[in-house]
Simulated assay, not measured.
Amino acid sequence: MVAMTYEGSSIDPARPSIARVYDYLLGGKDNYAVDREIGDVFKRDLPGSVAIAFANRAALTRAVREIAKTTGIRQFIDLGSGLPTADNVHQVAQRHAPESRVVYVDIDPQVLVHGRALLENNDRTRVVAVDVRNPEGIRTHPDTLEIIDFTRPVAVILSAILHHVNDDEDPAGIVRYWRD
């Protein structure tokens, strides 16, 4: 399979992107032929991959809705947020608790461009370009600190991201950092 990396890169329609492949599996329009080619490999070799993508998205939506409706948590950090699609974290959270604040974190250039354009007029959201493997960089990023008050509870979302972190990159350490 083709490696999909982003750091320091710009949007390259000839190079597959995990976020765009996921968009394709969800039936989105923000993908290129190379992404559809990889997505078709998933569809062919892992026939449940489309259902998994939709089930994952539904689980994310349910979790954010329940947090916003049943807890006092009004701050969310979405790690490896991916391309914006219907019922983004901020849409779900702010629908049930309008004062909710959301920081989206990703390093894919297309995700960053789309996210910033989508959220341009929402003063309770930010998109930060920090690698999920750098939790301290995320926590101390000026845009994160502008939106998130770490003296108050924060919901940290790790939806469909940890399987992209290699064992030697310490995914358990990332989870431990945010739990602590």
Rank of each mutant, 00 (worst) to 15 (best):
L46Q: 11
D23P: 03
G27C: 04
P13N: 02
S9R: 15
L25D: 08
D40Y: 09
R15F: 07
G39R: 00
D23I: 03
D30C: 07
K43I: 15
I18Q: 00
D23N: 15
R44H: 13
D35M: 03
D40K: 13
V21C: 06
D30N: 14
K43M: 15
I18K: 05
M4Y: 07
D12R: 04
K43C: 11
G39H: 03
I11H: 02
G27D: 01
L26F: 01
D23W: 03
S17W: 04
E37T: 13
Y6P: 11
T5K: 14
V34A: 03
S10V: 14
A19T: 09
L26Y: 00
G28P: 09
R20L: 01
S9F: 05
P16N: 01
V21M: 05
G39W: 05
L25F: 02
D40L: 12
L25I: 08
Y22M: 11
R20M: 07
D30W: 01
F42Y: 15
A19S: 10
V21H: 04
E37M: 10
D35T: 06
N31D: 02
T5Y: 14
D35R: 08
F42V: 09
S17R: 01
D35F: 02
S17H: 05
S9W: 05
I38W: 08
L26S: 01
A33T: 13
D12P: 04
A14Q: 14
P16M: 01
D35C: 10
G27E: 12
Y24D: 01
Y24Q: 05
S9I: 01
E7G: 01
E37W: 09
A33Q: 12
A33G: 12
T5P: 00
I18C: 06
L46N: 07
A19N: 08
V34I: 15
N31P: 02
T5M: 12
P16W: 05
S10N: 14
A19E: 13
D23R: 01
Y22P: 04
E7L: 03
Y6R: 02
V34M: 04
R15E: 13
P13W: 01
S17E: 05
V34C: 10
R20S: 13
G39Y: 03
R44V: 12
G8F: 03
Y22T: 05
A33H: 11
D12C: 07
F42A: 12
L46E: 09
N31V: 07
L46R: 13
I38R: 04
L25G: 05
A19M: 12
D12K: 03
K43P: 00
D23S: 09
S17F: 10
Y32K: 10
S10G: 13
D45I: 11
V41E: 14
G8L: 00
D45Y: 11
K29W: 07
I38E: 06
G39F: 10
R44L: 13
T5V: 11
V21S: 08
E37G: 02
D30F: 09
I38Q: 14
S9V: 06
I11D: 02
D45E: 15
G27S: 05
M4F: 04
R20N: 09
G27V: 02
R36Q: 13
K29N: 12
M4V: 06
A19D: 06
V41R: 15
D35G: 03
I11E: 11
D30L: 07
G27K: 02
L25W: 10
L25T: 09
L26K: 06
N31L: 07
G8D: 10
S17P: 06
D12Y: 09
L25S: 13
P16Y: 06
M4T: 13
A33V: 08
L25Y: 06
N31E: 03
Y6E: 11
N31H: 15
